[in-house]
Design a binder for these strands. Structure first.
Lengths: 91, 91
DNA sequence: AAAGGATGTAAGGATATCTGACAAGAGGGT
DNA sequence: ACCCTCTTGTCAGATATCCTTACATCCTTT
C-alpha cells in the first residue's frame, strides 16, 4: 500500500534539494561541475535529483564543513566506489 | 545512513506528479478543485505534493478507472477518514 | 435536445531554472 | 606585500515551468 520512492529515481528539482540540504544553487551546480555528482536532466534540460543524490550532497556538506576540500571529497568518493565495485547490485 | 523522505513532506512539483501518476496537469488541478486533495504551495504559489499525495492520486486514478465518479471518490475518502480519526497519529 | 461531469487546450502573466561571466573573500606560496 | 587558486555570490539574458481563467469537447443522463 505504501509505494516508496526508489532511491535512484530522479524526481527532485534543484529548489527542493536546496531546501533539504541547505546548499545554494551555486554550490549544487559547482559540485556537479567538479564531478562530485551527476544529476540527470529532464526534457527541458533542468537538473533532476534522486534521494541518493541528496544523501550524497549531505555527505559533501559534512565533509566540507570538516575542512575537506573538493579534491578530498572526490578522493573519498573514488576510494569508496572501488570497494563498492566488488559487490555491486544492478537495478 | 539512509535518510528517507517523510511521507508528508511536500517536495514534488506538478510535473513529477504527472509523470509518476500518468495524470494530466488538468486532472491534477481538477481533483484539487473538487476537494480530493490539498497540496501545499511554495513561496511562488506553485503546488508542491508529498508522497502521500501521490499515493492518493494513484487511488483516485484506480477508482476512476473502475467507473467511480468524483463524488464517489470523495465519499470513499470521507468514510475512510472517519475510521482513521479513531486511532490517529500526530506528526 | 439539454444539462452536467470530466478533460483538453490556449492565452497571458508570474515564477523557476539554465548558462556564462565577473566579483570577492579566504588561504597559501613566493 | 603580491599573486594564485579555490569556493561562493551575484547578475543578465534566455528558456522552461507553472498559474489562473476561459472556452471547447466528448460522454452520460435526463
Amino acid at each position: 500500500m505504501k509505494s516508496d520512492i526508489p532511491r535512484r529515481q530522479a524526481c527532485f528539482p534543484i529548489r527542493v534539494v536546496m531546501e533539504m540540504t541547505d546548499l545554494s544553487a551555486r554550490q549544487i551546480r559547482y559540485y556537479e561541475e567538479q564531478g562530485l555528482i551527476k544529476p540527470s536532466r529532464n526534457e527541458g534540460n533542468q537538473r533532476m535529483f534522486s534521494v541518493e543524490d541528496i544523501e550524497r550532497f549531505l555527505e559533501i556538506k559534512s565533509l566540507i564543513q570538516q575542512g575537506v576540500n573538493i579534491a578530498g571529497v572526490k578522493a573519498i568518493f573514488a576510494s569508496r566506489q572501488q570497494k563498492e565495485g566488488t559487490n555491486q547490485k544492478l537495478d
